[in-house]
Design a protein around this nucleic acid. Structure first.
Lengths: 126, 126
DNA sequence: TATTGTTATACTCTATAACTATA
DNA sequence: TATAGTTATAGAGTATAACAATA
C-alpha cells in the first residue's frame, strides 16, 4: 500500500517537474479548467488562502493563469487558464502516465475489483 | 485511485503534524530505527545529501536524533534515534491509523486480492 | 461587522555550488 | 583523486497575523 502510494506520488512529482512546475502549482493549475475563486481553491486543497495567492502569483508570472474579477462579488478574484496554461495542463496529463499505465496492466474485471476494494478500504462513501 | 492516494497522503501529513513534525522529518525518523549514514538516507529518499543534513539538524535540535560516527569510515556520520526519538516514532505509528483502518475494512481474502492487484498495477516486481 | 484576498514575515523543504575532512 | 558530509545561498511551499476592499 505504501509502495503504491509512493510510486504514484513520485510519478506525479516527476511529471510536474518535467514541465518545470512544482506539485503544488500543478494541483492549482488542473483545478482551473473552469475559473473559480481563490477561496474555493484553498478549501479544496486544504491550505491557507495566502498560500494560494503566492502560487497563483507564480503561475501568473509564467503566463499560465490570469486573475479575472467576479461580476457578482467585487472582493472575489477568478483566476483562469490562459491558452498557454491549458497547454501546460494537457502536457502534464500526457506526462503523468502512471494511472493509465497501471490500468493497462489489469484486465477490465481486475480494474473494477481494484476500484471497489479501494473504495471499501477508504470507508465506502467518505 | 487518486482519491485513495490523496487520503493516504493527507492522513500521513496529519499524523506527522499531530506530533509537531513535517512529513520529511518523519520520513527520516522512521528510517533510523537502525543507525545508517546520511548518504543512504539521501539515496533512499531520493533527495540531495544537503537536504538530509538540514533535516537531521532539526531533528537533533529537538533531541530526537544524535549523530554518531562510524568506526569504519571517519567521514561518515551515523545518526541514530534517542529514547525520545524512538518514542516519537511509536507515537507516529499510533497516530497514523490509515493503513490499519483500511485493512480492517476488508476481509482477509479481499486484502490479499488488493495487495495482488496493486502489485500488478505497479508492474509486478518494480 | 463579516468575508475575500493580499502583504509581511518566518519556518521548512529542496537543490546547487563551494568547501572540509577523510579515504 | 574520489567520497561523505557540511555550509552558504536561493527559490518555493506553508502558516499566522495584520491589513485593504467589498458585502
Amino acid at each position: 500500500m505504501y509502495q503504491f502510494v509512493d510510486s504514484y506520488d513520485r510519478a506525479y512529482e516527476q511529471a510536474a517537474s518535467s514541465l518545470g512546475l512544482s506539485v503544488a502549482q500543478v494541483c492549482v493549475l488542473i483545478r482551473l479548467e473552469a475559473p473559480r475563486t481563490m477561496g474555493s481553491l484553498a478549501s479544496e486543497l486544504d491550505c491557507d488562502a495566502s498560500n494560494i495567492t503566492q502560487i497563483v502569483n507564480r503561475l501568473e508570472a509564467r503566463g499560465l493563469v490570469v486573475r479575472g474579477s467576479s461580476p457578482h462579488d467585487g472582493r472575489a478574484r477568478l483566476p483562469r487558464l490562459t491558452d498557454q496554461g491549458r497547454q501546460a495542463v494537457a502536457e502534464f496529463e500526457r506526462a503523468f502516465t502512471f494511472p493509465d499505465l497501471a490500468r493497462s496492466r489489469l484486465t477490465a474485471d481486475d480494474l473494477r475489483t481494484l476500484t471497489r476494494l479501494l473504495e471499501a478500504a477508504m470507508g465506502g462513501g467518505s
